[in-house]
Structures are given as structure tokens and as C-alpha cells.
Design a protein around this nucleic acid. Sequence first.
DNA 1: TTTATATCTAGGAATGATTATTATATAGAA
DNA 2: TTCTATATAATAATCATTCCTAGATATAAA
Lengths: 139, 139
Amino acid sequence: MQQTSEILRELKIKVTPQRLSVYLAFNKARGHLSADEVYRAAQKKVPAISLGTVYSILENFCAKGLLREIKIDFNKSFYEMKKEPHHHFSCRICNKIFDVHMPVCSALRTNTVDGHIIDDFQGYFYGTCAGCLNGKKKK
Amino acid sequence: MQQTSEILRELKIKVTPQRLSVYLAFNKARGHLSADEVYRAAQKKVPAISLGTVYSILENFCAKGLLREIKIDFNKSFYEMKKEPHHHFSCRICNKIFDVHMPVCSALRTNTVDGHIIDDFQGYFYGTCAGCLNGKKKK
DNA sequence: TTTATATCTAGGAATGATTATTATATAGAA
DNA sequence: TTCTATATAATAATCATTCCTAGATATAAA
């Protein structure tokens, strides 16, 4: 926990129990979480935390470069710990999100295109995941 | 108009005035339209058209491969006539969407990755557009 | 350690895009 | 022309997200 506080302080993020609980939710899940999933995980540490606060913290963490917002799925955002650039895959059957293990083309790492300045790129694949292809159940 | 009806019939889309008006909105705009923008454009031809019908038609057109849904912008979908695969750019200042003139890497045209079957890919760039860099106004 | 204050949080209301519902209308086949 | 599956209009419902405000609190400064 002490370690987590230091990570936040280094990023100039004021340390609060709510923020620690959100950070730890990602540390434990190590995947892609929706705001609601973060909310439920954070409640285990801070029962009185509100959903509005979770949204506020997610926005703050993204702004500070700690998290990354993923808009692959329709009508709902997901978040993940920021790491090496990579694409995502969304299964149309079970709606799960997967990291894609494929090198990101150098062309996509460019800083400008058509005269626009680029600060982020998101690559989203859609289809049927390996699990659903094998006849597994919808989560 | 006759021509448009034939295009729809070839795609097994039942021809109605509402659907023609939506198709023509895209034919005229040649860009990326939100449901609301389609709604307002379609109203010029069919004043009584409802927003629900527009959503229904957009979904139908996407399913038939006539349109393509773009989820680049937060909390709102855009649609465009389906054409050659290409990436999109969204300006964080003016929120306009641009087609990106950059060849889509062959690696992204794959049909499978990590055992998942892919049926679509969307590449989204974010940043500041050329217009906003030149100090133009927010639309 | 105490104090001051900028910022964070809880709770709830508001927003806005999208979807669902249902009765009626209609395109296209027979 | 008639029939029937499907499309539409109108409206209500949903749901993620944002907004708002009063009160709480983390952190810097004394």
C-alpha cells in the first residue's frame, strides 16, 4: 500500500483512500475494467465510495497517464493500466475484450498525418474470440 | 432517385421514402454523420420521420454493408458510406472527424489474431487537426 | 503539530444518446 | 387487388456519464 501511495504521489496525484482503492482494483484485475466494475471492486475497500467519484478518479488517472481509456465496446468505456501500445479485440458474442499480440506497425506510431498532430492511436479489431469459437458460454 | 431505389433493392433493403432520404443524406454529405445529423437531413425530404426510425435505418444499412459505424468520438456514433478501409482522425479541439490518408498496414488486414476470427478493424487517431493548428474556430 | 485552503467526495439530480414498445401504415409478393 | 411481413411514428424507458453542491480531507505552510 505504501508503495501505491508513492506511485500516485510521483504522478502528482493527491492520495486518498478512494484513489488507492481504484488503483488497487486495476492492479488486481490486470485487465480491462468498466467504470461499474471499478466501482464494485473499489467498494470492497471503501464501501461508501460513489460512482461519481469513480468516474472522477478514472478521468484523473487517464489525464495523468496512469490509465488508458478504451472505447472499443459500444456505449461504454473500459479502462486499463497504461503499458506498451497495443491493439484490442472485442468479441461480438461474449463482449470480452482482449489485448492483441501483434506488433503495432511503425506507420501508426507517426506523430502527424494529413497535417494533423497526433497524440494517441487506438486500434480495434472485432469478431469472434477463440473461446466462443470453441463453443464456450457467454459470460 | 430511381437509381437509389435499385441500389437498395440489390441489397435486399425494402425501399421506403424514409430509407431513400437517409441514403441521400449520406450521398450528399459525403462525410461522417451522427444519427442526429442524419435525422435533420432526412427531415428535409420526409418531415414526419422519427429519430427512432433513423436509428433503425442506420442499423439496417450497417448490417447490409451499406454504411459503417464509427465510434471514434466519445458518447456518440458516426456513420459513413462504406468504402476502402481507412483510419480516422478525431480532433480534440473541434471534434471534427477526418479520413486518414495513409495506407492500412497489411498486418491489420489479417483475418485472425491470437486465435480470434476478425471481421472488422477500426483505427482511430486523436490529436489536433490542421485547421485548429492554424487557429481556426471551433465548429 | 496546528492551521489554512485547494481539492476531493457523497449523494442525487440532470443529460443525452440509444433502445424498446406498440399501434398503425405500407412495400412488395402473390 | 389482397395479404402479410415488416417499417414507421410516437413515446416511454434505459443506461452510461456528467453536473451540482455542501461538507470532508489531504497536503503545504507556519
